[in-house]
Design a protein around this nucleic acid. Structure first.
Lengths: 174, 174
DNA sequence: TATTTAAGTCAAGTATGCTGACGTATTATG
DNA sequence: CATAATACGTCAGCATACTTGACTTAAATA
């Protein structure tokens, strides 16, 4: 419409190459989650449990609503998984101090152990891939991934301090 | 064990950076599939239908067993989705000529239209991301994605002719 | 006090996967 | 040619991870 993109169409923007992008993401994600799924299955957990454990580990003290915003699932879907994890002592809930309606989420020792098992497998995949591909490739990977995701999701990849600000923003919280 | 990796641990192999890789993949995949899911929902289809339509479009005349190998699901799981797509005239089955047990799969016009709608949305995401990031970044993205996936999955990204050879390998097929 | 917010819950439903067991047509093999 | 193997389909049952909608409770806020 406004810009005739067909006139400036580098090789890597051909239909074929764009399909390759789609497929790279498909196969990478499928393989990336497979091993974790297998580990989880032993505990009778699924991928949903993994995601909860991962992000609670990442953001200790996260509220339920912030977790819902990250996962983009419904409260009811989270509820089943979360209450299971609390019941089986992987996650601990503490009443918020500044807002006592909140239930802040933390991993227990048991939860941290499982989180490490799952995360280290996936980190191992990235460690190997990053090492083989090199620093420049890693930066390219980062750029492309950020480019494909919704703009609203990119805020998760700003400076870590800023992210924590966003998640725990109670101004007078000493 | 054999190699003490902790001694050679460049900046981009720190725990934090490896976690960022995990999260880039998570958020990118989540956003990448969201719009398609919404389009599919109108037709009362799900992501499973999308995958079938995509790969049948990509490999016209693929056999059921080759499709199963790509998707890594069971025959029964595919069956439900596939028979629905055949019944509603998105996919056509033709008896194989060299092996009459095979049911070769093709998109119908209706199927091709839906495939295009779904694929072009995702291609648009990659087109924008590739354009912003540049050719070097695209190559880096490709390397890292290939590195994270299982070695067995990398064969899907060899020269396209070779892939077709693999899928339609009837040596004497004139 | 009235409203909003954070979190949890009940009920019902859908999509996608699984296992196991069979059936049928076709091809390959002893 | 009889038997085995292959490609595909299907029936039945089950589990998990999601969904929407309605409602409750407790706490914060206007």
């Amino acid at each position: 419409m406004a810009e005739p993109k067909t006139l400036v169409n580098p090789l890597f923007l051909r239909d074929e190459d764009l399909r390759q992008g789609i497929e790279l993401l498909f196969f990478a994600y499928r393989d990336f989650t497979a091993r974790g799924d297998a580990i989880l299955a032993k505990q009778h957990f699924g991928r949903a449990h993994h995601r909860v454990i991962y992000f609670v580990g990442r953001h200790a003290g996260i509220t339920v609503s912030d977790l819902l915003a990250i996962l983009r699932i419904t409260k009811q879907s989270l509820s089943r998984v979360l209450s299971q994890l609390v019941r089986e002592n992987y996650i601990e809930q503490r009443t918020g101090t500044s807002d006592r309606r909140q239930r802040l989420l933390y991993l227990t020792e048991k939860g941290r152990t499982l989180e490490q098992e799952l995360t280290s497998e996936q980190q191992g995949r990235f460690a190997a891939a990053y090492k083989d591909a090199g620093a420049i490739a890693v930066e390219g990977f980062r750029k492309v991934m950020l480019g494909t995701m919704d703009p609203s999701s990119r805020k998760h990849f700003q400076a870590p301090d800023k992210l924590n600000d966003k998640l725990n923003d109670k101004p007078g919280d000493k």
